[in-house]
Amino acid sequence: MARFILVRMARTALTLFGVVLLTFCLGRLTGDPIAMMLPQTATMEDYERIRASLGLNEPLPTQFIIYVANALRGDLGRSIVFNRPALDLVAERIPLTLQLGLPVLIVSTAVGIPLGVMTARQRNRPFDQLVMSLTLAGQSLPAFFIGILLILVFGVYLRWLPTFGSDTPAHLVLPTLTLLIYPLAIVVRLTRSSMLEALTTGYVRTAQAKGLSEHVVIYRHALRNALIPVVTVVGLQVATVISGSAIVETVFAWPGIGLLAVQSIGGRDYPVIQTIVLISAAAFCVVNMLVDLLYFVIDPRIQSPASR
């Protein structure tokens, strides 16, 4: 167990290292950061001075080591546009992104799993077919188009809800609904297929043969085992929630991480983009690791990568 955790943590660290290396290289390729910072009247001496002060005259591997060392101390560079630490800038936006993401996470799980169980129990009956068609449509709709349709109906025609900004709780409704559709569809479909598989297993038939009530068989025996793949997907959703949605936040002018990313791209504010990429990747890796560890707790039969 301890060995499994250690190996898993080492792998996560290694993956993160790869991500950092990649973003560092991309950052060096996006153009000369000094040329963007200097006024047009600057001389060659100014250029060299800033170059030296930023450590950009060091060889690339040295620069990378400095970058990693700074990153470990929480210094991910300064925003070119705002002239503030990039990490502060991103951290400020996290609560706003979570405001959208947490309701999505809670509703997609709390509604998606029961709905998945219900469709599995009514397999091929009209209710199942209706839900399956709706979820297929939900998976096929691009988020920005859902957002635009919602704006058109509830904002433009009915005038019930505000369509952009983040001033009142009412502003939350449309972006949350937009973000909700895809994860909800995924959770329903996944729970359904996983339940259908669990219902054919020997232990479920045994439970039925023992004369246990249908409720107990479904929820105690089948669902517990069927939930394992669902846990992974919900885990991935947690990571997505933290990194925010650039597209949906743009549609609704919601000032979270996603919108910051899009604006930073417009302003070529590479340190900020880099920070967002790193935080998203770190969230993804850590959540994934936790999910894997959780599995090991739920079901020790699952092979650990150490014994692979």
Partner: peptide, 13 residues
């Protein structure tokens, strides 16, 4: 590594 990277942002960069 590929799975960990937020793809849209990477594409933008």
């Amino acid at each position: 590594v590929q799975f960990a990277l937020p793809f849209v942002l990477l594409a933008v960069a």
